[in-house]
Amino acid sequence: MSTPATSSMYEPKRLGRRLAGPIFGALCLFATLIGVVVLAVLLGSVFALVTRYATSENWSSWLANVGGLSSYLGNLLSRLQSSDPESAGFRAGVFGSLWLLGMVTLFSIPVGVGAAVYLEEYAPAGRLKQLIQINIANLAGVPSIVYGILGLAFFVRAFGWEKVALGPTLWAGSLTLSLLILPTIVIATREALRTVPNSLRQAAVALGATRWQVIRDHVLPSSIPGILTGTILALSRAIGETAPLLMVEAAGSILRVPRGPGDRYTALPVEIYSYAKQPEAEFQTVAAGGILLLLALLLTMNSIAIVIRNRYGRGPRN
């Protein structure tokens, strides 16, 4: 600012200014498209990798490729882990992941929704509420592998106290994953509860309902679409997680489907990892097939979330 004013400072520089705008706009559009293009290329290459191996037909016979791909994925679903790529599959992992999904749902939804209801409807403004809020915000940013370490020391080994240690069972894995997605569920549920108009609560209270009756009969039913959407997205994150499960010893070659919550297990992403780190190209194809199975599972869950969001028109908006 200390430079003396010269006549050149007041020139309009029209050409430069007129060019800068469109160039910058195009650059921004290009950057945005990189994300979209990368997504398309990545998914396309997974498909291409599986299809190339699964079918002997060339690319022109498109229908045969689809048939070959689906029968290949079907085979992967029916086979167990193996050191021979020809007979390797994901049966144990798929069932393990479904067990985890069920157990994590049972643990995380009551606790996550409960914590959110407490914070929104019960907690008096004060230190405790503030502490819990800050704590949840920070928990949401803790790397997933740290939850894995917590699960390993706490659930799997219980600090060496063998009577209460859960060992590398489905209990330990699902409790670890539940803690991992708890902050996400709490944050999503609080947002959904906030969309419920206060007049609804006041009307119910005026008719003599107790606080729990207000929440159970009015607040929760009208915020359930938002809660479900956020919860399903959180659960799909839990299903895709690998690192915490490696920490709680879900790895290893488990050659059977788990029989109950106290059984040892493996999960789909963990099996993908153990195939992907093999150097042979055939295992890479098996891993790509597993990724397609995983993405199909996640896509199903996300579509359910989107259907709920569109049908009831509440939920978090973009």
């Binding site: 994300g35 997504l39 997680e241 992907a276 890479q284």
Partner: peptide, 15 residues
């Protein structure tokens, strides 16, 4: 893009 599991990104990195 944010919802794709990290194992998928890892796989794509090596393949």
């Amino acid at each position: 893009l944010a919802g794709v599991p990290t194992i998928v990104y890892g796989y794509l990195a090596i393949s």
